[in-house]
């Protein structure tokens, strides 16, 4: 697919681009719909409930009904909200979440752009999401939103640092920031084993980046009611919701690619199973883990959250880099 990028622009390949983007969007929407469905189901089961079961067979159309409801709802805006920013915020939150997917290799062949600095691109772009959240919090002209937005800013910026630091180890091991090469380099051993420390830091930081339990402070419903999107309704709220789950999609993809060997089978003998299945399996495992956490964990507190990021995660990530660097140097015969 990436060879399209090399061609001279023409009507044909522009249509291809658009079509590919629409397909990806459709896949994403399908994912979001059923991620929400399964989240509710899994958490329901864990809490001895049965989850959604009324709309459609087994409640499969529950999210569809919910989204439809959101779309036809009145679009309310607080009287003293900053009109322009209020409208802009959901887009700011959503666009980068969607944009990062461009460099994600799902299998050897399914990838949109094979960037040499794919990882850097991902991290750079995902950093923009926080802008959307802060903007939403400020523009809503609501105190809860504001606190949610500020918490979010502090949290996302703080956790971005250990997140980036934790993947440096992977980059050191692979010697490349190209996501496809990172996967290929895991043929012998998934990065989760040599980079276990990095993996743990990454998973924790990713959780915080995604604003999910136990780091869901920006939208803590029992403290801030709903945090930064408390004033949003209808379609705009749906955008935030979408951004959150698309971002989760992105993060799950990244973690699969970086640490879980992407589309590679668990042992080479199982090679006959297509890569995409392997990818989906690993991807789902991570998503399930998130739901599982949500069903179990209480929420952290802001001060603990911050001190955890700076006093625990960052040193651990730095140590991981040091360790990896030493090992890599040793292997390449520097000592």
């Amino acid at each position: 697919m990436s060879e399209l990028l090399q061609q001279a622009p023409s009507l044909g390949n522009t249509l291809w681009f658009v079509l590919a983007a629409v397909v990806l969007l459709a896949v994403l929407l399908g994912f979001v719909t059923y991620a929400i469905y399964f989240e509710r189901k899994v958490i329901g089961w864990m809490q001895l409930r049965i989850g959604p079961n009324r709309v459609g067979p087994l409640g499969l159309l529950q999210t569809v009904a919910d989204v439809t409801k959101l779309l036809i709802k009145e679009d309310t805006r607080p009287k003293n909200a900053d009109r322009a920013l209020f409208t802009l915020a959901p887009i700011l939150a959503y666009a980068p979440a969607f944009g990062v997917l461009a460099v994600m290799p799902f299998t050897e062949s399914i990838q949109f752009a094979d960037l040499g600095i794919g990882l850097l691109y991902y991290i750079a772009l995902s950093g923009i999401t926080v802008l959307g959240v802060i903007t939403a919090g400020w523009a809503s002209n609501n105190k809860y939103s504001l606190i949610g937005g500020l918490r979010s800013a502090a949290q996302m910026i703080s956790y971005e640092v250990p997140l980036v630091m934790s993947v440096v180890g992977v980059v050191l091991l692979t010697g490349s920031m190209n996501l496809r090469e990172i996967v290929e380099a895991q043929r012998d051993m998934w990065n989760i084993i040599p980079q276990f420390l990095g993996f743990v830091v990454f998973i924790i930081a990713a959780q915080a980046e995604l604003n999910r339990t136990p780091f869901d402070l920006p939208e803590a419903e029992s403290e801030l009611v709903s945090g930064y999107h408390v004033e949003y309704s209808g379609f705009r709220f749906a955008m935030f919701m979408l951004a959150e789950y698309v971002y989760m999609f992105g993060m799950a993809t990244l973690i699969t690619v970086l640490f879980l060997g992407g589309w590679l089978p668990i042992i080479p003998q199982l090679d006959f199973i297509p890569g995409i299945i392997w990818f989906i399996l690993k991807f789902s495992a991570y998503v399930f883990f998130q739901f599982w956490l949500r069903a179990t964990m209480p929420r952290m507190r802001v001060d603990q959250l911050m001190s955890f990021a700076w006093k625990v995660l960052l040193p651990v990530a730095l140590f991981n880099i040091l360790l990896t660097a030493v090992v890599v140097s040793y292997q390449s015969g520097m000592f």
Partner: peptide
């Protein structure tokens, strides 16, 4: 525990 963000205990 619901106040502290854990949803499960409430249901148990």
């Amino acid at each position: 525990l619901l106040d502290l963000g854990a949803m499960g205990p409430f249901l148990y």
